[in-house]
Simulated assay, not measured.
Amino acid sequence: MDSNVIKGKWLQFKGEAKKQWGQLTDDDLNVIDGEKDKLIGKLQERYGHSKDDAEAEYRSWEQSLRS
């Protein structure tokens, strides 16, 4: 699944993102609006992750959506 699919189905995936990253607020999720770079940025901001760690978390989450 690529980031375009996630953007297109963001309303469906928003709940999954909230479960995965409980520190993200509803406002954060609305601002992210399915955009990979914004989600990675919010993970860095909320969790103090490096960019590489946030990207790795995103990839892992993206993989879990395929299952």
Rank of each mutant, 00 (worst) to 15 (best):
L24W: 00
G15F: 14
E57M: 15
K19L: 13
A54G: 00
L39H: 04
K9F: 08
E35G: 00
S60R: 09
A17E: 10
G48E: 11
W61L: 11
T25M: 09
K51I: 03
D27V: 06
G8W: 02
G15T: 12
M1A: 11
R66L: 15
Q63V: 15
D2M: 00
R66S: 15
E57F: 10
G34F: 00
D28I: 03
S60Q: 15
D33L: 01
D37R: 07
K7Q: 03
K18W: 06
V5K: 13
D28F: 03
E55C: 02
G8P: 02
K7S: 10
R66P: 11
Q23Y: 03
G15D: 14
E45Y: 09
D26W: 03
F13D: 09
R59W: 04
A56R: 05
K42A: 03
K42T: 03
E62P: 13
K7E: 00
Q44P: 06
A54R: 07
A54N: 02
K9Y: 05
S3W: 05
Q20R: 10
N30K: 11
D27Q: 04
I32Q: 06
G34M: 00
G48L: 06
W61E: 05
W21D: 03
W21S: 09
D53S: 11
F13S: 10
G41A: 14
D53W: 01
D26R: 12
I40W: 01
L43S: 04
Q44K: 07
I32W: 01
L65A: 12
G41S: 15
Y47A: 05
G41C: 07
N30M: 09
S60F: 05
E45D: 15
L65D: 14
E45G: 00
Q12V: 10
L24Y: 02
